[in-house]
Amino acid sequence: MAAGNISHIFRREFKVYFVSPIAYIVIAIFLVLAGWFFFSTFFLFNQAELRDFFNLLPMIFAFIVPAITMRLFSEEFNVGSYEILVTLPVTFRDIILGKFFASVAFLAIMMLPTLSYAISVALLGELDWGPVVGGYIGAILLGAAFSAIGLFASSLTKNQIIAFIIGMIICFALTIVDKLLFFLPESMLGFFQYIGAGYHFQNIARGIIDSRDILYFLSLIFIALYGAHLSVRERH
């Protein structure tokens, strides 16, 4: 029953993404940004690899993902449809997971066209597929973690803009924290490096799939979704 409800909510949310033009705009912006940043320097290095593309991803995701997730709860609070949703026989867990999976699925669809980068690069030279596969796995994990954070931000307010800004600030902070390490005292380096999403993503994107990195993303997802759970429950 519960799994059924998650899938009903998932399907509705996923469909709705493609009803409004916002989805297509977000996808277009993502592809333009990623494509332009990547290919503008690609030919200078004369290397058949996607490393630069994956280097850019966390930063782009920090802006794009909160824009995808901002409506998930905020819009429902604003319109009032949330009251209907909650009084249907579903649990908060069903609602949160359904919405979460919908945004992750949307991200996956958004990433799909970038496979053409890999294919065109592979045609140009010897592409090492290990880091590419790792990069996509990392991208899904990173996107899922940022989605969970965006969902949490959306559960805090009925204003989508505020939800976007909160989500973006958290994702952005997690992305750059390991790049600002030189500002921090040496004793805390390890800690801040560990909480940085960029660091773990780069590990996976190198093609090394370490359980610690996976665990990091899974715990980030869990914490954010649990936060969203607490936040929606608090409304009652």
């Binding site: 709705v16 009803v19 449809s81 209907i84």
Partner: peptide
């Protein structure tokens, strides 16, 4: 079965 005030249904469906 519950119908809240103003019937706040999903507008985009």
């Amino acid at each position: 079965g519950y119908l809240p005030e103003e019937a706040p249904l999903y507008r985009d469906m």
